[in-house]
């Protein structure tokens, strides 16, 4: 296709862009400011409608305890979505990694070796997703829904549907480090989620890897022409999501001292919803770690709020669904607007 030659000289860049430092800050961080605004508004709403629940510290402790179970996966998942890929198999990766943990722990009696095996299995299964999607070129959505069922089936076959009590790990230093309580109050998994957020933020915003992630999601062809190793970056992203899923899966199992074969199943929707609510576009190229981090807590706050306010519990799931639809629709709208301008 041939571009129509431009007849008129385009105006110099200075002509139509008045700005100030404050406006520039708002424009550059608009989405992040927006999501903080949403969070504050919601919080005020909760406080006025369900003061007994939201004025007590218990609810915040509950958030810190349960949000990291999916939040730790949502963080690297954000990078993957920015690179215009997706992974629907992370709930199953959580389960297969913990299966590895349980089996190795039983076989060796060493929680450290089992921990390493758990992370390794998560990472490798994630890499395998990457190889299937990138190397073979299958659409990520189809391929990872396939691997989601594959690994879930594998977990069921290996464990034969049994659950495993992990009570005897109570008091183990590693368990304390992963899901204990800091100063007797702060759940350690929250510390891990903050650590994961900092790591992912550094990787995405301050490292060459992250620069490539943005470029690939924005314009894969350009990235390839400019010599970026697109395939390796994408495969590695899948691996990182897998690694995080393995870690988060273990936190989940250790926290409740039990491993069920359907571990992780409820996290698919809220994990994705947190990413999209956080302002990451399904079309790739944009998105922030900060947005996802806040998004995780907003998503998690919906259920207790709905219950506390006295609506029926099922409203929660409907809201999750609408969050996804709305953020997808918003990005579609923004894109069509931007293309026209």
């Amino acid at each position: 296709m041939v571009d129509t030659p431009r007849i008129s000289t385009p105006p110099p860049p200075s002509a139509s862009r008045p700005t100030s430092a404050a406006r520039r800050f708002i424009r550059r961080n608009g989405l992040q400011l927006g999501i903080v605004g949403v969070m504050v508004l919601l919080w005020l709403f909760y406080l006025s409608f369900a003061p007994t629940v939201f004025a007590s510290e218990n609810i915040y402790r509950a958030f810190m305890q349960s949000v990291p179970f999916f939040g730790i996966v949502a963080l690297p998942l954000t990078m993957l979505v920015i690179a215009r890929d997706i992974d629907l198999s992370f709930p199953s990766i959580m389960a297969i990694s913990v299966t590895a943990f349980v089996l190795i722990n039983q076989a060796t009696g060493s929680i450290i070796i089992a921990f390493a095996a758990c992370l390794l299995v998560g990472f490798l299964v994630g890499l395998l997703n990457g190889v299937i999607v990138v190397g073979i070129g299958l659409p990520a959505l189809i391929a990872t829904i396939g691997t989601q069922f594959f690994w879930r089936g594998m977990v069921q076959v290996i464990t034969n549907g049994r659950s495993f009590a992990l009570n005897d790990l109570r008091g183990d230093p590693l368990r304390e480090l992963l899901v204990g309580r800091l100063f007797g109050f702060v759940p350690m998994q929250m510390i891990w989620m903050i650590a994961a957020a900092v790591l992912v933020w550094l990787l995405l915003n301050r490292h060459r890897f992250g620069a490539h992630v943005y470029l690939i999601g924005d314009n894969e062809n350009s990235a390839r022409l400019m010599g970026i190793n697109v395939g390796r970056t994408r495969v590695l992203l899948f691996g990182l999501v897998g690694l995080a899923a393995g870690f988060a899966g273990l936190l989940t199992a250790l926290d409740i001292s039990n491993f069920f074969t359907n571990l992780g199943e409820g996290y698919l929707l809220i994990g994705l919803a947190a990413v999209f609510l956080g302002g990451t576009s399904v079309f790739g190229g944009t998105g922030t770690v900060f947005g996802t981090f806040i998004g995780c807590f907003i998503i998690a706050s919906i259920q207790p709020a709905v219950v506390a306010i006295g609506w029926s519990g099922f409203t929660t799931q409907v809201i999750y669904g609408f969050v996804i639809v709305l953020s997808v629709a918003m990005h579609t709208f923004l894109r069509s607007r931007l293309r026209l301008s």
């Binding site: 943005y214 924005d218 314009n219 062809n221 350009s222 990235a223 022409l225 400019m226 190229g285 944009t286």
Partner: peptide, 8 residues
Amino acid sequence: ERALADQQ
């Protein structure tokens, strides 16, 4: 095609 990334 200039090999640029528009949103960056």
